[in-house]
Computed example of a mutant assay.
Amino acid sequence: MAHTQKQFEEFHENIRISRSMNETLRDKRDKVLDRIKNHLKSNNLPTFRRLLQGSYQMKTGTIPLDGQEYDIDVGLRFPVEHDGNELKASEVRGWVHAAVDGHTTKVEKKRSCIRVTYSKGFHIDLVCYSVGKAHRKPTQYQLADKDTGWRPTEPADLLEYIRQALKEFKHTENNQTQTDQLRRIVRYLRRWNDFQHVTHGIKRATGLAFVLLACAKLKPVTDSDGTPNDLRALRNMVSQDANRMERISVKKPTQEYEDLFTGFSDEEMKAFKDAWNDLADALSKAEIATDLAIASGHLRKVFGDDFPVVEKEKPMESRGPAIISSSTSA
Rank of each mutant, 00 (worst) to 15 (best):
N43L: 05
D147Q: 11
G121A: 07
N22I: 01
V116G: 00
V198S: 07
D291A: 02
A134N: 08
F195I: 09
Q68N: 11
E173N: 14
R77E: 15
R151Y: 09
D101C: 08
R163S: 10
P253L: 01
F78K: 02
V116I: 10
Q142M: 13
D194Y: 08
D34P: 02
F169I: 00
Y161C: 02
A89E: 03
G75L: 06
N243G: 05
A98I: 03
A242L: 02
R183H: 03
D306I: 00
I36R: 00
N174K: 08
L76N: 02
H135L: 09
Y129M: 04
Q255H: 11
E154C: 08
F261P: 10
R204M: 15
S112Q: 15
G132R: 04
D305H: 11
W192F: 13
A322I: 10
Y141C: 00
T24Q: 12
A282N: 01
Q178L: 09
R232H: 05
Y188K: 01
Y141W: 13
H197Q: 10
Q164A: 12
V127P: 01
T148G: 06
R136F: 15
S296A: 15
K273E: 07
Q142W: 10
G94L: 11
I185L: 04
S318L: 08
D180T: 00
E10Y: 09
I15L: 01
T4P: 01
R183C: 08
V131I: 09
A205W: 03
D34W: 12
L45S: 03
T62E: 04
I202C: 04
L208G: 00
V186D: 04
K167M: 11
N14R: 13
T60N: 06
I17S: 12
E154Y: 02
L40Y: 06
S326Q: 14
E168M: 07
E108M: 05
R49L: 14
L126F: 02
V116A: 02
V302C: 10
I323V: 14
Y56N: 06
L45G: 02
N193R: 10
R183L: 09
A275F: 01
T117E: 15
Q140R: 14
S55I: 05
L213Q: 11
L292T: 03
K217G: 08
N229P: 02
R29D: 06
D223Y: 05
Y129R: 07
D266I: 00
H12T: 12
P152N: 13
S318V: 12
S18A: 10
P321I: 03
N14Q: 13
T60I: 05
R29I: 00
K88A: 13
A89D: 04
